[in-house]
């Protein structure tokens, strides 16, 4: 009884309007890489998945998109919650994932282990949703590319130490590659594969 109510609660209260609001922030964020957008509070899961990552999942995940959960999230409560609110099915490996949900950014699999798409169909690649502790205060990463007027800087906390190297390799695979949705607090920022990481800022 208790368990059922935990699973049933915390999704969108008005799915049509809230999905649109979260998606629109996501679309703006993907079109303006490395810029933080606040999405407000929509989902409030009582299972160990961050509210903003959960809201993003509720907006874009459904039965058509296999979801891969990292070690910290691959527990029954999270699977049941996502299953109930999105209809998601789950991928066994990062390479099969349309979406990946990562709670432990520092320990996440290398970007190249996720689905990269093919040269003919580069859209068939993973979108990785990362739960981070903050979108500023970490090491500054400066980007240029489509969606960025001159350069955009973001300093997320909780990315893997070798992220710059991995991201450059991801960009080098363009048009193949993964796209990232960074979440922290009630904000999101996106790093589409088109974003080019500039040499380190000091």
């Amino acid at each position: 009884m208790q368990r059922e109510s935990i699973v049933l609660e915390g999704g969108f209260t008005d799915p049509v309007i809230e999905s649109q609001a979260v998606f629109r922030a996501l679309m703006d964020a993907m079109a303006h890489p490395a810029r933080a957008y606040r999405i407000g509070h929509h989902a409030a899961p009582s299972v160990p998945i961050a509210a903003t990552a959960a809201a993003v999942a509720c907006a874009v995940v459904d039965a058509d998109t296999p979801v891969w959960l990292d070690g910290a999230l691959a527990i029954d409560a999270v699977r049941t919650w996502l299953g109930f609110h999105t209809g998601a099915r789950f991928a066994n490996s990062p390479g099969e994932a349309a979406f990946a949900l990562i709670a432990d950014g520092a320990g996440m699999p290398a970007l190249q282990r996720f689905a990269q798409g093919t040269e003919e169909y580069p859209d068939r690649s993973s979108t990785v949703i990362l739960q981070l502790s903050a979108l500023d205060g970490g090491d500054a990463l400066a980007f240029e590319g489509p969606g960025i007027r001159t350069r955009a800087t973001i300093a997320p906390v909780g990315l893997p130490a070798e992220f710059p190297t991995q991201w450059r390799a991801n960009r080098a695979r363009f048009p193949r590659g993964v796209d990232l949705i960074l979440t922290a607090g009630d904000a999101i920022a996106c790093l589409p594969r088109s974003a080019r990481l500039l040499a380190g800022e000091n």
Partner: peptide, 17 residues
């Protein structure tokens, strides 16, 4: 809603490439 989600996912990939 499922159609919108499918189109929204396509839009996100289109923006990324």
């Amino acid at each position: 809603e499922q159609t919108k989600r499918m189109i929204r996912r396509a839009i996100l990939k289109a923006i990324a490439i």
